[in-house]
């Protein structure tokens, strides 16, 4: 079974200040057609992810059914229902990287960190996400950690790369 519901049941740690900022974002876009994705985008930038409470606030604020908000959130890979780690690892599984062994890189990352793709380590240090093509096909397999690109990667190099981030 693949469901995202358990994770987003968590009570979000959204500070008063962030709630106010979220309301400002909603107010800025309210009434504009097609505002939902932009609001969700800014909400995620503000909070780091899109917990249930934030989605309800957006639904209420924009007067859009919650079912539609959640539908959009779960359709676009850009949106996350879970808190992100301090360091974001993106593993490219676009065609070129895929045929050049992206799977083995991902496997190594998952083994080393003890989490699976889409998850965050319990110490909040890393999140792993699979992405489709970073436009560096000649350099595959490619991963990105925050803003650093690691190209022509071999699984053995993974532990030493991870050590650079705390």
């Amino acid at each position: 079974m693949r469901m995202a519901c358990e994770e987003c049941r968590c009570s979000a740690e959204i500070t008063q200040d962030k709630w106010e900022k979220l309301d400002e974002i909603i107010a800025k876009y309210k009434g504009r057609p097609g505002a939902l994705i932009q609001v969700l985008h800014e909400a995620q930038e503000l909070i780091g992810y899109l917990p249930r409470e934030a989605q309800v606030r957006v639904a209420e604020g924009l007067d859009i059914p919650l079912s539609e908000v959640y539908s959009v959130v779960t359709f676009y890979a850009l949106f996350s229902l879970k808190p992100k780690g301090r360091h974001q690892i993106n593993v490219c599984k676009g065609t070129a990287c895929y045929v050049r062994g992206a799977d083995r890189i991902l496997e190594k990352l998952e083994d080393t960190l003890g989490i699976t793709e889409g998850d965050t380590t319990s110490d909040g240090r890393f999140s792993i996400e699979v992405v489709r093509c970073m436009g560096a096909c000649g350099l595959g397999p490619v991963i990105r950690v925050d803003d650093d690109i690691y190209a022509r990667l071999k699984p053995d190099r993974v532990p030493e790369i991870l050590k650079k981030y705390d």
Partner: peptide, 17 residues
């Protein structure tokens, strides 16, 4: 009801499954 998730994982369901 709305589509939740995407691709093979998608399902018409209440929000948050």
């Amino acid at each position: 009801l709305a589509p939740n998730g995407r691709g093979f994982d998608s399902m018409i369901a209440p929000a948050f499954f």
